[in-house]
Write a protein that binds this DNA or RNA. Structure first.
Lengths: 161, 161
DNA sequence: GTGAGGCCGTTATGTTATAACGCATTGCTA
DNA sequence: TAGCAATGCGTTATAACATAACGGCCTCAC
């Protein structure tokens, strides 16, 4: 995979609908309930490749009459995160839809965050980063995140205005 | 380096004083001012290998009459972070003293966070993680963080009680 | 001695996140 | 079918993390 999905132009409608379908399938299989609220929250996050704050999400949900108190947003985000449909971007205190739902729960994720346009691309971590150092220290890694800030292709100096 | 400093037993007094000395030297060289407040804040962070929240730090500073309003703590932390003496642990919203001040500003850092005892070890990132994926996507990484949660050697099942 | 800049005290507020309680629905199961 | 457990969501309140903005003081260069 040479495109950590998110920056390159792509068929975004297909991108959204296939992710939604994958989420529905996964829920059906696991007996998890993708309620209208949760489904819509995921859909909102899928609508861009940017990370959304919990309160931004809440605002959009509220605009549709789907709940307007913080716990509503946080509960939906917790569910989606547990199911692996959404990732939290620690550096932004924000949440982004998973670009690789097919990779399964808890796949090693690495994020490329453009500081200019705000888009976030997700690369499947090619190898557990740190693995060597961690083993050297006798540390048992359960879960690692990698987050890089920088400039995406479109936002770099040499790019079209 | 096989010990990402922090977990293995070590001479902690020396660890603290050498880090303080390194900070003083670096400030002298750069013309930065390690004021008593900033120095004490760094010292407090150095006293354990745990990450401290800004308000925890503030509480300790306040106990010594060194300021009791949030901006006091945040300003000290910003200074120490800019100088590379302290790192922010995004997953914890907390701050930890740099274990490798000699590595210079902005060195690639990777953190091993024990979810049981709370200690944080810092490994020098052996290689820019993500570099390959990022290049593949044409993304220019400026700054990356790696944070792993898990169990340190002392907190693993097979370890002494 | 005066002006510029850095540091800190302070007030106020903004942003992110969770605890805890209660009601409604679903789906058992006795 | 009555009762019960589990789950999802509405709601209130509050906790935890972070910053904007103003003013005073000190130091240093000129």
């Amino acid at each position: 995979m040479s495109d950590p999905t998110g920056f390159a132009p792509h068929d975004h409608r297909a991108c959204v609908s296939s992710a939604l379908a994958a989420a529905e399938a996964a829920c059906a299989e696991r007996g998890a309930r993708l309620t209208p609220l949760r489904r819509r929250a995921l859909e909102i996050l899928l609508e861009s490749h940017k990370a959304l704050g919990a309160y931004d999400l809440l605002e959009r949900l509220a605009a549709e009459g789907l709940g307007d108190k913080p716990p509503v947003a946080y509960r939906a985000l917790n569910f989606l995160t547990e199911q692996g449909f959404v990732h939290r971007i620690e550096r932004l205190n924000a949440y982004v839809a998973c670009a690789h739902p097919e990779a399964g729960e808890g796949h090693g994720a690495a994020f490329l965050i453009c500081r200019d346009c705000g888009r976030v691309a997700e690369a499947l971590a090619s190898e557990a980063p740190l693995a060597a150092d961690a083993r050297g220290a006798g540390f048992a890694v359960e879960d690692a995140v990698v987050e890089a800030r920088g400039l995406c292709p479109q936002c770099q100096p040499g790019s079209r205005p």
